[in-house]
């Protein structure tokens, strides 16, 4: 059902406007099966960029814990600012647990941010305009939430699904289960809807007035890319905090 509903997102309208084929011929097997490898290639590109940047920056530290202060602004400074900002934001919401979850939340946040921003570069496409990418991100977060819950509470984590009294458990359990599946759907659909919608707006205005006007919406698109990353991160933190706290 979900795949059929979102199949229209496979070809973003930008491809039609820019007359760029959405498929890469070399991956013939996928193309012949009607699959679009473009989001996978772009997501892989983002992963490679992030891993390479992280590796290069961590190498530049050597065996020091603090980066040497140069006269020029470096990539390491920028990353330190971003990571310490993220940590401060997480500490405001989760308190002492924040440091443990920086790797998970930070990775998804940077991955989604770079995926969103990749679409602003001409010739590239945002992997997050494809439902599969966002569904993968949402599944990682929601599955991780439950793993974290079980590791924190053990078997008592099941109480989170059972409600306050035992004789209502049969009623509460399906409701909670549906609620948790709804989290996957709402996280992924929000991201894909906003990114695809934003590209649709830019493409439409590019078709109407090719000069200057789309630039306004491209700027708006940058804003949307950051806000959606922020929302995804915020909700991931809230879900993880919910799994960590005691069942009421």
């Amino acid at each position: 059902m979900a795949a059929d509903t979102f199949i229209f997102l496979d070809h973003t309208p930008l491809h039609d406007v820019l007359d760029k084929p959405a498929t890469v011929e070399t991956l013939g097997g996928m193309v012949n099966n009607g699959l679009d490898p473009s989001p996978i290639i772009h997501a892989g590109l983002v992963s490679i960029i992030l891993v390479a940047a992280a590796y290069a920056i961590s190498r530049s530290y050597g065996d020091r814990r603090i980066h040497p202060q140069g006269k020029t602004f470096s990539l390491a400074n920028l990353l330190e600012m971003a990571v310490s900002g993220l940590l401060a934001f997480m500490e405001g919401l989760m308190g002492d647990h924040a440091r443990r979850f920086v790797p998970l939340i930070g990775t998804t946040a940077f991955f989604i941010l770079f995926c969103n921003l990749l679409g602003s570069i001409p010739g590239f496409d945002s992997p997050t305009t494809n439902y599969n990418t966002t569904l993968a991100c949402a599944l990682v977060i929601v599955v991780a939430t439950h793993v974290i819950g079980f590791r924190a509470h053990g078997a008592k984590y099941v109480k989170h699904f059972m409600g306050p009294v035992w004789w209502l458990a049969w009623l509460i359990f399906p409701i909670e289960l549906i609620g948790h599946f709804a989290r996957v759907l709402s996280l992924s659909v929000r991201l894909v809807g906003n990114m695809a919608g934003d590209h649709l707006v830019v493409a439409t205005f590019m078709g109407l007035v090719a000069l200057l006007v789309p630039a306004v919406f491209m700027g708006f698109g940058l804003f949307v890319a950051f806000v959606q990353t922020f929302v995804f991160t915020l909700l991931s933190i809230i879900y993880i905090t919910g799994a960590l706290e005691e069942a009421h």
Partner: peptide
Amino acid sequence: WYDLLKYSSLGLEMGAAVVIGLLF
């Protein structure tokens, strides 16, 4: 600002819950 974004997610979550229940 956080609260605004947090509660803005509520609408989609409500819709998603109904759809998931129906599909299941």
